[in-house]
């Protein structure tokens, strides 16, 4: 199951449980005779402990998977310097200034990265906040970071499938936002 389908399924199941609880509440509230809610204190304590336990487990499972802690002990095979600007991405294997005076386009015009090896993107912006979201050839979001002026975010990733990857901007950057695109290939 892809992470996308997993997240949707998880949400739908939890939402259904939530909805069922409220439908149940409505139904019992309509019955003319009833005992009322018994042992409120015990139920409250149970809910509290259950919720805290679930959260504790979730935190310990998910926090280490945060992007800041992944691929930290590797030397990236390739580094791509990215400057986002309204409404495109300038990319090069070498660092360059925002006025593009020392910008060297990649050979063949397209950034090519090795498959199955860790790579690093150093992402910044020349004007406003932008997104740097990598989509695979099925147009599923693989990973992302933000491009913020004055700062460089380092996104490390390993692409296992060769192919063409598309970049879309995921931070609203004015009217050209949906047309802002970039691409690279993985071989």
């Amino acid at each position: 199951m892809s992470p996308h389908t997993f997240i949707l399924t998880l949400f739908l199941i939890l939402a259904a449980i939530g909805a069922a609880f409220f439908i149940h509440l409505y139904r019992v509230s309509c019955s003319t005779e009833g005992p009322g809610l018994k042992k409120v204190g015990a139920k409250r304590l149970f809910t509290l402990v259950l919720l805290l336990a679930v959260f504790l487990i979730l935190l310990s499972v998910t926090l280490p998977k945060s992007p800041y802690y992944r691929f930290t002990d590797v030397v990236p095979e390739k580094t791509v310097h990215v400057t986002a600007m309204q409404y495109t991405y300038m990319m090069s294997y070498d660092a360059f200034k925002p006025d593009m005076s020392d910008y060297k386009p990649p050979e063949g015009g397209v950034i090519t990265l090795p498959a199955g090896k860790p790579v690093e993107f150093r992402v910044t912006s020349a004007d406003v906040n932008h997104g740097f979201a990598i989509y695979n050839d099925k147009f599923e979001l693989v990973t992302q970071t933000q491009a913020m002026p004055h700062y460089v975010n380092r996104l490390r990733w390993q692409f296992d499938k060769p192919g063409t990857y598309t970049l879309l901007c995921l931070e609203f950057c004015s009217s050209g936002h949906p047309a802002m695109r970039g691409m690279f290939t993985v071989k």
């Binding site: 509440l25 509230s29 019955s31 005779e33 009833g34 809610l37 409250r44 809910t47």
Partner: peptide, 15 residues
């Protein structure tokens, strides 16, 4: 926790 239990206490089986 507080709101759901409070809601349940208000609504539960009471016509």
């Amino acid at each position: 926790v507080v709101t759901l239990i409070s809601l349940a206490a208000v609504l539960y089986g009471r016509g």
